[in-house]
Amino acid sequence: MAKPNKKGPTKTVQIYCSKCRALLYKYRKGGKGALVKCFIERIVEDHTKAVCICPECDVVFGREMLIRGTPAYKIIGGKVTMK
């Protein structure tokens, strides 16, 4: 399978918790679709204290897994929003 683009996209989005609106990540997202996964190498700023857990309300918003052989966070639908 193909690996994600090494250079990565230039568009940066901010990812927030849907429940408490706390900032979770600043992420270089490619494409214009919904946020399904976050490749760890594309995260610019990480504001979480534990993996895939909101620092404010302690909601689990994703799972750590390998996607196309690259470490990533698989996002649970409806748990995060992005701007």
Rank of each mutant, 00 (worst) to 15 (best):
A2P: 09
A2Q: 14
K3P: 06
N5T: 10
G8R: 11
G8K: 12
P9G: 15
T10G: 09
V13C: 10
I15P: 00
Y16N: 14
C17I: 13
C17P: 12
R21C: 03
L24I: 08
L24G: 05
Y25T: 05
K26A: 05
K26T: 03
K29P: 03
G30K: 13
G30E: 15
G30D: 15
G30P: 09
K32R: 09
K32P: 02
K32W: 09
K32N: 13
G33S: 12
G33N: 10
A34Q: 13
L35W: 04
L35T: 03
L35F: 05
I40Q: 10
E41P: 02
E41T: 06
I43T: 03
V44P: 02
V44M: 09
E45C: 07
E45K: 11
T48P: 04
K49F: 03
C52I: 04
C52R: 08
C52E: 05
V59C: 01
V60F: 02
F61V: 05
G62R: 02
G62C: 08
R63I: 06
E64A: 10
E64F: 14
M65P: 00
L66Q: 06
L66N: 03
I67E: 07
I67F: 09
I67W: 07
R68A: 10
G69T: 00
T70L: 01
T70H: 06
P71K: 10
P71T: 04
I75T: 06
I76C: 07
G77N: 14
G77D: 14
G77R: 15
G77M: 12
G78K: 13
V80Q: 13
T81C: 08
T81V: 10
